[in-house]
Nucleic acid binder design. Structure first.
Lengths: 231, 231
DNA sequence: GAACAATGTTAAAATATGTTAAGGTTCTAT
DNA sequence: ATAGAACCTTAACATATTTTAACATTGTTC
């Protein structure tokens, strides 16, 4: 994972270096600029994952800077730090294309949490896959993303429902996958018919999985199913 | 543009209906649920653009509900309303996959602004209006603006519909492109015939994309399509 | 072990999607 | 304006996926 780069523009040197230090300690590569003009220069030369801008600054205020940044990059997340709590300011800030704003005083933890929330949202779109997508089931290799189950070089294509159910079973391997939990997760419903439908899929999965005798898909009466793997 | 759908879960009936009214007035289609359980039921039956959850509720609290919602939909934005201002709670909230949280008391305008910020962030990434115009699809290079798809120096000209659909798929690469969302975005209509038309285009795109075996355009039954890129 | 509930299993019914080609419609060059 | 090309929709038929039905088996309770 690449290090996240933060542009921090804050004219108060105490707060600025404090935040920079904190963010660095949390693993973010942070550049601190002390006014809007410098902030713009830095931004135009480098690429950042997120910008944190103080609103009230001499020379060039945060809103103006945000607009200039937007002109260069329409997508980079921008967070405002503002002492003002007035509605109008907030409106102006968001209009300028902000993704969030934090009113001073704030805790550094809160800032961090908001940064994380924003990054998660943006990164999720671009990173190939953050969730687990490949599973080893005995001698089988299950690729959830591609919906395939392979053993001895033979590949079985799975349907969406088959893959969903098998994934849940894998995530709960050697533990009970609760019947109702699975139904709600996949069928979004736990009525009688959905239940019977799931039972049908369990039967199908058992068929697929019988090439490896160390793998078993058993029922736990009244509770759910358990995928027993290996050993 | 389709109306934005908001799921609001708030146990205080006064605050709840006040917010609902306000959001409706602002043009958001809002469903109000009065507790976590009801919120879950509503969510599992319908599709929402954003969820606003009160944290402290009887029966099922907002954090628990958020986890359940995440199990169904890993992407829908979640905002917490919380009277608590403790760090720990905030941490737990964000861990549960929240995109923002607002501490009571808050102004309705602030809520609206935060909702807007989040929606802009999410929609821009996936909507046909995204500014992004060039995409790498395995060994293919797709130029949306010029409507071309190129591999090994061979250039295929795309029609408008082909390019639109491929762009939406790229913006949601490795994730599900919801069938109805795509239909509404490109065909401005989700009736039967538009759907069949889209299926025809999917088939055409599959033909174009079969030069690179690491690229797959698969169907997710009842949901939509997924463009799988790489590995 | 009788009665009921839960699960196993297979197949038919109902939906959804895949694909090709035939019809329309719109655009473009003359 | 009009023929031809390009594009989009609709039709028609094929296949895939999911749900429902039907009946068999297993487990639980008393």
């Amino acid at each position: 994972m690449e290090k996240v780069k933060v542009l921090l523009v804050e004219d108060d040197p105490n707060l600025g270096s404090l935040l920079k230090e904190y963010l660095e300690a949390k693993g973010y590569s942070t550049i601190l600029a002390v006014n809007g003009k410098q902030g713009y220069d830095v931004f135009s030369k480098d690429k950042f994952n997120i910008c944190i801008l103080d609103v009230m600054m001499p020379i060039k205020d945060g809103f103006t800077l945000a607009k200039e940044i937007r002109a260069i990059d329409n997508n980079v997340p921008i967070v405002f730090l503002t002492a003002k709590s007035m509605k109008e300011d907030a409106v102006e800030g968001f209009t300028a294309g902000a993704d969030d704003y934090i009113t001073k005083p704030f805790s550094m933890e809160e800032l961090l949490l908001r940064i994380k929330a924003i990054l998660r949202r943006t990164e999720n779109k671009t990173s190939i896959h953050s969730e687990q997508t490949e599973f080893q089931i005995g001698n089988y290799k299950f690729d959830y993303k591609h919906q395939t189950l392979e053993i001895k070089g033979v590949q079985q294509k799975l349907t969406t429902k088959e893959a969903d159910l098998l994934k849940l079973l894998c995530l709960n391997a050697n533990e009970i996958l609760d019947r109702n939990f699975a139904l709600k997760s996949i069928w979004h419903d736990d009525n009688y018919f959905s239940g019977r439908s799931m039972d049908v899929y369990i039967a199908k999965l058992r068929k697929y999985l019988k090439e490896d005798s160390s793998v078993e898909l058993i029922n736990v009466h009244g509770k759910g199913f358990k995928l027993l793997i290996g050993k």
